[in-house]
């Protein structure tokens, strides 16, 4: 469904992505792991054109484009098929929870207001915020804000949702509620790419795990392969550090 081929991106002299390729099929939950600075977030942001990649190709269903020469029209086509959930939620502060969800539907997708509100309420119900339609972001906890962020993402009925460290900014207590919603989505067959440090989420929910380091994909495989039989030394090193009790079988 979505394929990224050989993507390159540099910030000045700092090469962040050095030829990364990634393939996602419908229904996949791909978790990208890696130390900070490995390019995970940049990869995700490049897929939604929040960063302009220097080279590489993107194939999304029947759209086929090169990053370096992409037109505004293609960008907006691909953005219509995707949704993005940010690390720091990025809710619109001047809009209520419900307005945050309906804004894109009404303004960008030109849905009639009543229809948008209906969809918006359903999305918020799904993430367990049916009591919070008219709350402003400043009145919501971090976990609730992120769930609004997820509701906003699912409301547009995207083919794929990109999650950029959705729980990193949350209190440990609030992480569970967000991961719970994501798990639910995965069960329903939502296609997702998730950058995260939540190893348990990767183990339980992902059907593919990609390990990145230094702007390259070091290794990828099923969670089982990756967590119990990683092939590369670099992967083992990383997993050992992040999971102290990690015990792999050779």
């Amino acid at each position: 469904m979505l394929e990224i081929k050989n993507i390159y991106k540099a910030f000045g002299n700092n090469e962040v992505l050095k030829g990364v390729s990634l393939k996602v099929e419908k229904g996949d939950v791909v978790v990208i792991l890696g130390p900070s600075g490995s390019g995970k977030t940049t990869l995700l942001r490049s897929i939604d054109f929040l960063e302009k990649a220097d080279a590489g190709e993107i194939i999304f269903d029947d759209i086929h484009a090169e990053f370096a020469r992409i037109s505004k029209k293609t960008i907006s086509q691909i953005r219509k098929k995707t949704a993005f959930v940010f690390q720091n939620y990025n809710l619109f502060h001047n809009k209520t929870a419900l307005q945050n969800v309906t804004e894109g539907l009404i303004i960008a997708r030109k849905l009639p207001k009543e229809k948008a509100i209906e969809i918006g309420k359903r999305a918020l119900d799904k993430v367990g915020l049916s009591e919070r339609y008219d709350y402003y972001p400043s009145q919501l906890s971090g976990g609730q804000q992120q769930r609004v962020g997820i509701a906003r993402a699912i409301a547009v009925n995207p083919d794929i949702i990109l999650f950029d460290e959705p729980t990193s900014a949350l209190d440990p207590e609030l992480i569970g509620e967000v991961l719970g919603v994501m798990k639910e989505l995965a069960k329903e067959g939502t296609t997702m790419i998730v950058v995260t440090h939540e190893m348990h989420f990767a183990q339980d929910v992902a059907n593919r795990v990609v390990f990145m380091d230094g702007g390259r994909v070091v290794e990828e495989g099923t969670p089982d392969e990756m967590f119990s039989r990683p092939k590369e030394e670099r992967t083992r090193q990383f997993l050992r550090r992040i999971l102290p009790d990690f015990d792999y079988v050779i």
């Binding site: 939604d48 054109f49 929040l50 907006s76 953005r79 219509k80 995707t82 949704a83 993005f84 940010f86 720091n88 990025n90 809710l91 619109f92 502060h93 001047n94 809009k95 804004e103 894109g104 303004i107 960008a108 997708r109 906003r152 547009v156």
Partner: peptide
């Protein structure tokens, strides 16, 4: 910048994002 990025990812144009999201907050 985050709110602008969000607006773009949900398909709004830069202009729409400025008028509906950024400017109302900036004025305040």
């Amino acid at each position: 910048h985050g709110q602008m990025e969000t607006a773009l990812t949900i398909g709004m144009t830069k202009r729409q994002a400025y008028i509906r999201i950024i400017i109302p907050q900036a004025v305040v």
